[in-house]
Design a binder for these strands. Sequence first.
DNA 1: CCTTGAACCTGGGCGC
DNA 2: TGCGCCCAGGTTCAAG
Length: 296
Amino acid sequence: MPELPEVETVKRGLAPAMEGARVARLELRRKDLRFPFPDALAEKVSGRTIVGLGRRAKYLLVDLDDGNTLVSHLGMSGSFRVEEGAASGTPGQFHHARSKDEKHDHVVFHLEGPGGPRRVVYNDPRRFGFMDMVSRAELAAHPFFRDLGPEPTGNELGAAYLAERFRDKAQPLKSALLDQKNIAGLGNIYVCEALWRSHLSPIRAAGTLVTTGGRPREQLNLLVASIRDVIADAIAAGGSSLRDHIQTDGSLGYFQHSFSVYDREGQACGTSGCGGTVARIVQAGRSTFYCATCQK
DNA sequence: CCTTGAACCTGGGCGC
DNA sequence: TGCGCCCAGGTTCAAG
């Protein structure tokens, strides 16, 4: 499911339910997701208070009051949902408000706070997601985060920075933008969309956007602006929902209705005056959607 | 160093 | 209705 805008949407949806709440119990319904859960994860989280939620790249960060951060990656199919009310079987007026367990519910946060008891449930059919516990002081140096490039929404990302990263690179632009070491948080959808907005071909060598002197060419400025714009637009739309919900209340993001090329093979290119058709090719084993007529 | 392909896992869609 | 095949928002690791 999740690239940066989807994880940001999840974070914003979880914040009202989780921030300031106490974890009465963390329930792990299996011993692993993509990786085994760290030792005694349930015991370490149970009883702690959540002091804040954060996001870095595609990672959701749950800051606890003991200085540790629960790090959650949603892989391809992970999602969170919030359920107000007490746990099943607990006598009380909230019982009716609680939803049924669903297939692939792997982790349940049983929370208590000013708004009453509630559950936050992590569901992940493919189990490519994972959770880990890292000391906040060591977060930046942790292997998950150590090599990540800048966030596309921040000031660090600019044409000069990308020129430095792309210089002399024969690697296709598509792959260079998917590389989390260059920019953190972009995935298949938003790379395709940003390249279309920039009129740049996904096949083109990344180094061709840099002069021999190492200066960014004008097209690199356009690429940076396109990346920023598409990410901002997607966050504003609550992310993209392809096969399932993205928002924590079960509703859908709607940026998928704004796709210009992603999953639009055979459809007309929307670039004004272009007249081309969206094509699908495979790069590094993944689908790339683009218009060969206007993306050079 | 670089690039590609397979692997991890389940489910949905489509053709027959 | 069922089967087989292909595809899927990510990341990592082996191989060439």
